[in-house]
Design a protein around this nucleic acid. Structure first.
Lengths: 240, 240
DNA sequence: CTCAACAGGTCAACGCTGTTGTCATAAGGT
DNA sequence: ACCTTATGACAACAGCGTTGACCTGTTGAG
């Protein structure tokens, strides 16, 4: 088969579909995001997307080689949107905290897309910008290269992983979600101290803490550990 | 439609399939796990599972209402297996590290089940046992109750989140997964220092580090931060 | 020892999915 | 104004989860 997809730069003939829509990579991604948000992750299929766009499903294969390509484009768009609203101040810890919380919030704002795209490495422009920026913050703070990459990796994966996890629970169908929320009060808080001493002793804290996301706390722990390593590095510098 | 699924307790007539197999919930779950292990996550479909069992696909609907039900049964089995092989030694840091790595490995071994079950609070026996055990480790180490719950929450969510994240990437269809692995070498490592100085400077480390899971590193960071907090608490005890 | 009830296996069909080979046509460069 | 070809449309394929209807072997009661 001859290559079906034409690189965006080479596209010139903007021929409308039967229903009068002029397709483009941007329009397709935007429509996909809208579909996901409005009707759930399951609503995203090539056929439904085609219908929503007013085009034949097979037309999309002129823009994306397969559905996976489309997912990567969606993921990159999400990264771009988040990055655009972030302006670092120079304080590495504050900057990373801010970016982490922003990415997490961004994921929660598009739960279904976040779940689908969190685990992809896109290699696209927005992602590259993000990598460059975060590495810049860490190296600027004085982390040696190897350590900077290690912290970067843990930071990014932690943020994406929690984003997907928390998105997944907010995306649960209504009743199931309510049931989950009450388990801590209804089940755990009632366990007798005799059989479950540790749960019983901390029940109050569990009920208060567990229904909320632990991402902020986990992020803080990561930043604390990173700072400790930084001072350790600076006290006794390592050869790279 | 009258209810198709009969509760396991009520099952009595063990009628063999045409190919002579006697079905059961246990056999179905075991076969599903075997399928996933032997032929990858994509190999698990109702039809393939039926074929592997020597039964008509629709027979499975006598045991599970839908595929999700089956996935949850598989997940429950996994939790059980993981807990059963963990025996704490008394060293809180080593014990948490061991449990975290075990849970993560368990998730990776059965990616599909992990992705589906990571964000659910079941409130079932195995889960309760795990909560009690982890809280016991932390409180035994000397963490005050509130801090113990905070650490527990971050620890568990981080483990589940990374388990799901890493599972999701291993569950990618073959070609997509290979593509991801090569992005760091093919795209990132080739960016010029002029436009992307930080990526260029750390390219070597990125290529080496990024294709691997960052969970072990993230876990270590969490444990380090926890230890720091513990010594801080012990130096200046807080009123609870 | 017989026999009716019914649990549980089977069959066929529905509508959905991603994907591709082929064809038609209008846009753009010349 | 023409010719090329980019790009949209169509039809078809195999595979998916799921369900309603049907058939049959097992079972416990009489």
């Amino acid at each position: 088969m001859t290559e079906r997809v034409v690189p965006p730069a080479a596209r010139r003939r903007r021929r409308p579909t039967k229903q009068g829509v002029v397709l483009s990579e941007e329009l397709i991604v935007a429509t996909a995001l809208r579909l996901i948000e409005e009707h759930g992750a399951d609503a995203l299929s090539v056929r439904r997307l085609g219908r929503a766009l007013g085009a034949d499903p097979s037309s999309l294969y002129r823009y994306f080689r397969h559905t996976d390509d489309l997912m990567l484009a969606i993921a990159d768009e999400l990264i771009g949107r988040t990055l655009r609203t972030w302006n670092p101040t120079g304080d590495w810890r504050a900057d990373l905290r801010e970016l982490g919380l922003r990415m997490h919030a961004g994921a929660l704002a598009h739960p279904r897309a976040a779940v689908l795209s969190s685990y992809r490495v896109t290699g696209r422009v927005h992602e590259i910008e993000a990598v460059e920026a975060i590495l810049g913050v860490l190296r600027g703070a004085g982390f040696p290269d190897a350590e900077a990459v290690r912290i970067y990796h843990a930071f990014v994966d932690q943020t994406l992983a929690f984003g997907a996890l928390d998105s997944a629970s907010t995306a649960l169908p209504g009743p199931a979600r309510a049931a989950e929320a009450s388990v801590w009060r209804a089940t755990y808080a009632r366990l007798p101290a005799g059989t479950h001493p540790n749960i019983a002793a901390t029940a109050r804290h569990l009920v208060a803490d567990m229904p909320r996301s632990s991402y902020p706390a986990a992020l803080e722990l990561l930043l604390e550990a990173a700072e400790a390593r930084l001072t350790a590095c600076q006290r006794r510098p390592v050869a790279e």
